[in-house]
């Protein structure tokens, strides 16, 4: 009897320890939302995930926001006597290498808001442009201080244009057949395509140049943020085609004098991509609105 009792106790104890039940919340979320980017223990495989710790050095990888406040003039929607307020928010992936001698920037996204006009045009860039891998590198000309990006003049962005001798001063092409025009967003249309939703729905085929003059960007106390003023900018754009054709209206953009334009960098994981910047930009830069 005693032997049987002890045998039962031993067997029973084994049963107690032998259960390896587990309920995984991450797996459940995975099943519900269809993503497959997870390790078995629920950790994400995406290299973007990792520790982001504050640093006292500007070297690193950032999501960058450049807010350009301007006045927009178009024949119909924003006539000369009633120009519209234009806010352009450019989202970039930026890297400052450890040597602190340059900043590498890749264009990721753009959002524009027009207000104050008779009709407030609405438009958006296409996914093709977002994924077009448009890079700009700006050398500092020296080794920058640990805590600030130096003043930078003449950061030039070009859309739908190639092979200009002087990228900052050569005139932009007028016609889609111009040799300097190229289909940068790979959609079969000349230049870059901008989708218009107001006042009409359609597309504009654009060439564009933006030149930024950044003020000093200071690393904030949190070690995660760099802020500075966009001292001045110039934006030129031309529609070299449109569908419907009435969207091929000329427009002019001039920096606003009543509103400051700024730039901000938020430290992110060193192996982040533009895709990640597009995902988090809404949240990261909400205070910048």
């Amino acid at each position: 009897m005693k032997k049987r009792l002890w045998a039962s106790v031993v067997l029973f104890s084994g049963f107690l320890f032998g259960c390896d039940w587990e309920s995984s919340g991450p797996q459940r979320l995975r099943d519900a939302y269809g993503t497959s980017c997870f390790e078995e223990d629920g950790k994400q495989k995406d290299a973007n995930l990792g520790e982001i710790t504050p640093q006292d050095d500007i070297a690193g990888t950032y999501a960058m926001l450049v807010v350009q406040n301007a006045k927009l003039e178009t024949a119909l929607a924003c006539p000369p006597d009633n120009r519209c307020d234009l806010e352009i928010r450019d989202f970039l992936l930026a890297r400052v290498p450890a040597e602190r001698q340059a900043i590498y920037m890749e264009f990721c996204d753009q959002k524009t808001t027009v207000t104050g006009g008779k009709l407030n045009p609405e438009s958006r860039i296409t996914q093709g442009l977002r994924e077009a891998h448009i890079f700009v590198v700006k050398e500092f000309g020296k080794v920058a201080d640990k805590d600030r990006i130096p003043l930078l003049d003449g950061i030039v962005w070009l859309w739908g244009v190639k092979d200009l001798v002087d990228i900052a001063k050569d005139p932009l092409p007028d016609e889609p057949s111009d040799e300097h025009v190229f289909d940068q967003d790979n959609d079969g249309k000349p230049g870059v395509t901008v989708e218009v939703t107001e006042p009409l729905e359609g597309e504009r085929y654009m060439v564009r140049r933006a030149i930024w003059n950044l003020g000093e960007g200071k690393l904030q106390q949190d070690g995660m943020t760099i802020k500075g003023v966009l001292r001045s900018f110039i934006i030129e754009e031309k529609a070299i085609g449109a569908d419907p054709p009435m969207l091929k209206q000329p427009s002019s953009i001039e920096q606003a004098t009543d509103k400051q334009s700024i730039f901000m960098l938020k430290r992110i994981h060193e192996r982040s991509t533009c895709d990640y910047v597009r995902q988090v930009s809404e949240i990261l830069f909400s205070e910048g609105s």
Partner: peptide
């Protein structure tokens, strides 16, 4: 002896 629960 509990079941392991991982929160997500």
């Amino acid at each position: 002896f509990p079941e392991k629960v991982v929160f997500g």
